[in-house]
Design a protein around this nucleic acid. Sequence first.
DNA 1: CGTTCGATTGAGGAAGATCAATTAATGTGG
DNA 2: CCACATTAATTGATCTTCCTCAATCGAACG
Lengths: 258, 258
Amino acid sequence: MFATCAPAAPATPGSTPALPQRREPRAPVFDGHRIAESLRLVADNVPIQRRVLRAGDTVYQAGQRFTHLHVVNAGMYKIVNLSADGRDQIVSLKYRGDWLGFDGIPEGVHDCDAIALDTGEVWTVSYDALTRACAAAPALIGLLHGAMSRELAGDRGSLMSVCSLPADARVADFLCNWARALSRRGLRTDQITLRLTRAEIGNYLGVTLETVSRAISRLARCELIEFTGKGRRDLVIPDVDGLAAFVQGCLAPVPALH
Amino acid sequence: MFATCAPAAPATPGSTPALPQRREPRAPVFDGHRIAESLRLVADNVPIQRRVLRAGDTVYQAGQRFTHLHVVNAGMYKIVNLSADGRDQIVSLKYRGDWLGFDGIPEGVHDCDAIALDTGEVWTVSYDALTRACAAAPALIGLLHGAMSRELAGDRGSLMSVCSLPADARVADFLCNWARALSRRGLRTDQITLRLTRAEIGNYLGVTLETVSRAISRLARCELIEFTGKGRRDLVIPDVDGLAAFVQGCLAPVPALH
DNA sequence: CGTTCGATTGAGGAAGATCAATTAATGTGG
DNA sequence: CCACATTAATTGATCTTCCTCAATCGAACG
């Protein structure tokens, strides 16, 4: 696939111009203010309970009765969906400002686990109290809907990645998204610590852990990523846009349709 | 994979009993009443505009300003996500009772297309009017949240299918879900018409159209599905639970983890 | 210092993609 | 109504990617 490490050649010489291949470093999005406001809006209108978690702690578990929602104030979390037949599947990752627990709404019972990946804090609010507060403070409705809609958008992104990208690109895309999620929230990206094992990343991306490992090694060989610490969990992405361009490059021969 | 058509042998003789392999025909879920109530609740509290669509018509398109939501009263719809680089990806399918348009909430602009797959009708409501009505009729809040949460659950299911099932099982799972979506809504399932081409199914499931075609042929050979009409678009699923069991059977050698 | 768990890397095989040819259904214009 | 074009679906042959199996290595921990 990319033994040559050719990073997304700017479209083959005689190709259609239909693909702008946008390479200008996109304006770095920063959501920190919006998130801080959201947190304040919640805390001002609903009684919250702060809860500190350590890596491995569960915020809630599948099967538990649903009574509360949780807003992430700090830390990172994985959402694990367990199907009836024993498969378990990491379906999304959550960061500061994201909500946890929507899955329990329709049936009153959670059908996912939410598990902390590192030390963090969530603000827990009663769902009943929250809906009542919505009547008084309509801004809360917009907040909630926005959060749910963003979660939907994230899911669509995952599906897109899994359905349309080869394994190496999936891993690259995963790393891009991770880095962007951090940078949008104002967290440091010059020293990223992967909080997932290769097996977990593979589970999330629909590939085996060996494939993840090989992909990461190749990306490192191409210097699209660099390891910093002793182990293989701390890394730097020197140029996130370059990494994103690599993802695009994996699609080169396929584009035209309709 | 299943040249012998062995349908989910009840676990290999000496295997762990950890996998119950539930085969009792699950109680058929029927959501018709809940959906009818939901539609009425909306119509009673918010001005709606009925809109009839024919196959291929768009309910809304990516890039359009978001002002309205839509509830499906009839017909089937595909949601297509187009990424910046030209990939387009079917991310979900919608039926009576589902909502369309949530993707526009956070940015005020849609980032998906919603396209009718056959003749149908949607009820269009102003999002502003709807949120205002939520204050007056709190049941609407629960309705909306339930709908969004169900959509999230559907997305997780898709991701799970794509990440953990081999191609043949994915197609089988897709057909199961289609049939169940219909039967839950009280629509006839003794004569299912696929409204998607093989290419579209493949796009949705992350495989090529040839793979879809082969999988469908094999399922038909095993009599897990049967074609009815002249073409290859009308089919019957004699035993949905049997088809679901086939999906499970594809996972046999993998289960244990942790 | 040995044990354990996670990660890396290689070799071989299998599932699925790609390329290509054929058939079937649908639509068009004469 | 028929010849023709067009689009969808099927099926086969080959090739690539990724999975599986296995060995090795490294870091962390008791």
